[in-house]
Design a protein around this nucleic acid. Structure first.
Length: 126
DNA sequence: GCCTTGACGGCAA
DNA sequence: GTTGCCGCCAAGG
């Protein structure tokens, strides 16, 4: 069994909570689950689930809003079309305007913008 | 059993 | 201000 199935589960939980028209970054998700250094693991988890699941992985972009994983969809254009279809503003052809649509897991709860001390943030939201 | 790459991020020079 | 490097954990070759 995987070394950290719970890790991927948290990633899916956070990404699944991303509202339409909004996008999140790997660093934000990693930070929300309590692993600020697990940004890479977040991508690994999403790559393992692939589209078809209930995980809107197309709403997850890197820290600069670039569609890093666009090629995993077959072509960034596919991912871009999905985001555009949700009214997600784009700063560039393959770069979303994080300044306008960035979303934080802890931001979903009113003004609970407190820094994610640990994974309890997401677990508590569940 | 070993090393390299990988959907990233943060820090240093 | 910009560019480069290292670090994290896991999976694939």
């Amino acid at each position: 069994m995987p070394a950290a199935p719970d890790f991927a589960a948290r990633v899916y939980a956070v990404v699944a909570r991303v509202p339409p028209g909004r996008v999140t970054t790997y660093g934000r998700v990693a930070r929300a689950i309590g692993d600020p250094r697990g940004a890479r693991m977040v991508g690994w988890a999403l790559a393992s689930v692939v589209p078809g699941s209930d995980i809107p992985c197309h709403r997850v972009v890197n820290r600069v809003g670039l569609l890093s994983g666009g090629w995993h969809f077959g072509h960034p254009d596919v991912m871009r079309d999905l985001l555009v279809g949700e009214d997600v503003p784009f700063a560039d052809e393959y770069r979303v305007d994080l300044d306008a649509c960035v979303w934080d897991p802890w931001e979903d709860d009113d003004s609970a913008e407190g820094p994610p001390r640990d994974a309890g943030v997401v677990l508590d939201a569940m």
